[in-house]
Design a protein around this nucleic acid. Sequence first.
DNA 1: CTTATTTAAGACTTATTTGTCTGAAAATAC
DNA 2: GTATTTTCAGACAAATAAGTCTTAAATAAG
Lengths: 150, 150
Amino acid sequence: MLLSKSCVYGLRASLYLASKRGNEFHSLKEISEELEISFHFLTKILQQLTAEGYLESYKGPNGGVRLSSNGQNATLFDLVIAIDGPGLFTQCALGLPGCGLQEPCPLHDHWVEARGKIENMLKRMTLNEIAEEGKEKHFRLTAEGEFSWQ
Amino acid sequence: MLLSKSCVYGLRASLYLASKRGNEFHSLKEISEELEISFHFLTKILQQLTAEGYLESYKGPNGGVRLSSNGQNATLFDLVIAIDGPGLFTQCALGLPGCGLQEPCPLHDHWVEARGKIENMLKRMTLNEIAEEGKEKHFRLTAEGEFSWQ
DNA sequence: CTTATTTAAGACTTATTTGTCTGAAAATAC
DNA sequence: GTATTTTCAGACAAATAAGTCTTAAATAAG
Ligand code: FES
Ligand code: FES
């Protein structure tokens, strides 16, 4: 798989937050139910994003998480790096060490191009911008698409 | 990671076989030592490729494996499908079910393009053709590149 | 102050991938 | 035949990823 499950859950939750007008806190319970992600697992992942400064959290009744201003202007690329690390964008497709530094493997030139495409895909818009686009195009964030951009 | 370790080991071993002139059998011991891959693990992976008809094996002294004619004309794409299955080329980047059949996720159009690039990269040449190219360009198949195309 | 609601932290379990080991079966050489 | 070399088959173990659970800390409301 291209991205780990943790990473995909983190991206979907961040897009969920971006989809909400205003900037209220949304509880992990709400997010995990809406997106059908295990509550405790999602908690761990979003704690990472909070530690990285992409989310802000607030404890207590009516608490939850929301995008920080950093988070609103973050790209999916930033979040992938925060959760999965940079390996996808730096490593050899054949797992050999020192991609780009040593002699290339047979896939090198083509893989550099393809992974550049992936990088661009993830870097092309901020969460806020994707949310704007989502409001027009009704992108899906859940299995059944029972989710509406506001 | 894009490809599983099993898959990468299978590709590297197949390229190793393609790099050899003639069509003798090469023992798993030789391959695993040259490519620095665990002998028993590699054995299991190449058994899969043998079962799929990409390799031929021969038991006993001076036995080993070699590319079948199918294998010589196979692309890396064929081998990836044989080992990792088709998921990489069909699944949603956000892990949602029914990519292409249901409403698209925010990454869909871009991911379809990027994974098309990956597919083309893996489909563009047969093992024999990559071996020919390797003899000119001295591609690397090992960590330190201490491997020579014949 | 007490209770309820929420995130934080981390131990724990389960599933999957990766890697190791043992013995059987096939082929060769003597 | 017997011994040796090899793949084949599958059990086993270790490492990693994914998921669950429990307790603590912070906040709010009565
Ligand atoms: S060396 Fe293999 S992709 Fe760069
Ligand atoms: S629906 Fe997500 S990539 Fe196609």
